[in-house]
């Protein structure tokens, strides 16, 4: 089996832009193979444009060589086609990319934007949870001893830049600002697929971030509240108002379809 294996290893090298052993794969064969590589990059190019429309707006002039280099350096290890885009943010974050395009002054948040755009697509790669809680009444939440947790179709991110504002700005038809306009400002986002299969996000404060963290592994409402009061030192006096806020939050989550009970 060795010969075919060796040939295919050289084909892999060729596709990954690495050195190829000309004794196994002649320069003529490499030229022939270029048709396949070129076709693959063409289709990757259009897929990536659909997945990363905002990054494309920024990278426009260098988009084609960037896609080729991405194809060569981060070949997909998944048979599911759109997973090919999974590593784009890692590629953009890598020093080699930043060094190569150092004169372009690409914004420092570029890879975070790519991360966000990828998640918007990736959230569809999660199975629908069997039972999405839809009774959003306050009493139902508290009275049931059931475990509640977040559906699988969510991701929590901590960005160094205000990605939600950047996305909003770049998505608008308005002229793009000077890309350095957005300064560092940490932002925590819960990005999720809602009950209508729209991708949405919540900006998370310290409190809601803590809550989300607990809801990821599953908890019942009483325990959740108790832990919350302890963590943030909520005293008797403030318990009623805090509980009202927490209830609102959970009701909101339920309405959005991101809580599931088991």
């Amino acid at each position: 089996m060795a010969k075919l294996y060796r040939i295919q290893q050289e084909i892999k090298n060729y596709f990954m832009g690495k050195k190829v052993n000309p004794k196994i794969l002649s320069p003529e064969s490499q030229k022939e193979l270029s048709i396949y590589k070129s076709l693959a990059i063409d289709s990757l190019n259009s897929t990536m444009r659909k997945i990363f429309p905002l990054c494309y707006k920024i990278l426009q002039d260098n988009w084609n060589p960037i896609i080729q280099e991405y194809y060569e350096t981060y070949p997909s290890n998944s048979a599911i086609y759109n997973q090919v885009a999974k590593s784009f943010s890692i590629y953009l974050k890598d020093w080699k990319f930043r060094w190569k395009y150092r004169n372009e002054n690409y914004p420092k948040w570029l890879f975070e934007l790519a991360e966000y755009e990828w998640v918007e697509v990736d959230l569809f790669n999660y199975y629908r949870d069997r039972k999405i809680s839809d009774d959003s009444s306050d009493s139902n939440l508290k009275s049931s001893g059931e475990l509640i947790r977040l559906t699988k179709a969510h991701k929590v991110y901590r960005f160094d830049y205000p990605i939600s504002k950047i996305v909003e700005h770049l998505s608008s038809e308005r002229q793009i600002y000077n890309l350095t306009y957005f300064k560092k400002a940490k932002e925590r986002l819960l990005i999720f697929r809602d009950r209508y299969d729209k991708i949405r996000y919540f900006l998370l404060s310290d409190g809601s971030y803590y809550l989300i963290d607990k809801l990821r592994s599953g908890t019942n409402v009483q325990d959740l509240y108790k832990k919350f009061y302890k963590k943030f030192g909520i005293t008797e006096v403030d318990i009623d108002s805090t509980e009202a806020k927490l209830n609102d939050l959970l009701i909101n989550f339920t309405k959005e379809g991101i809580l599931t009970s088991s």
Binding site: Q8, P75, S78
Partner: peptide, 13 residues
Amino acid sequence: IGDHYFQELIPVP
């Protein structure tokens, strides 16, 4: 090839 999918139907000898 190996662990990588190249998104193309590469011919076989």
